[in-house]
């Protein structure tokens, strides 16, 4: 049977990959995806603990997190599109001026 610490290890590694993506990539889209990855790592934890405790609260929370993630992606992508239209780039390095 699966041990909880396997789940925790994998989810923390996923989270680490997400952080690394946010920190080292310059493409705003990839950064957005990395944030999604971190949310998923959190979801994994929720579900693992739900499984561990035998209660569905964790799953319900994971579902809520999924909804938040969808909202976040919608707004984030809209921002990226607006940015691209203004500045013709999706590279975060190039966005160093306050005024568009």
């Amino acid at each position: 049977m699966v041990n909880l610490n396997t789940v925790l290890l994998i989810s923390s590694l996923l989270f680490a990959i997400g952080i690394a993506g946010v920190l080292i990539r310059r493409n705003a889209l990839v950064i957005l995806m990395s944030i999604e990855l971190m949310l998923n790592a959190a979801n994994l934890n929720f579900i693992a603990f739900a499984r561990h405790s035998g209660s569905v609260s964790g799953q319900a929370f994971a579902l809520l997190v999924m909804g938040f993630a969808a909202a976040e992606v919608a707004v984030g992508l809209a921002l990226v599109v607006a940015l691209y239209r203004k500045r013709d780039t999706v590279q975060v390095d190039d966005i160093n001026l306050l005024k568009g």
Binding site: A60, F61, G67, A70, A71, E72, V75, A78, L79, V81
Partner: peptide
């Protein structure tokens, strides 16, 4: 148990929808 968060989530989704449309 989590009806309130669920409702809040739906409001947030609506806000995100409107916001995304306005932004894009």
């Amino acid at each position: 148990d989590y009806l309130l968060p669920f409702e809040i989530l739906s409001v947030i989704l609506l806000v995100a929808l409107v916001g995304a449309v306005v932004l894009a």
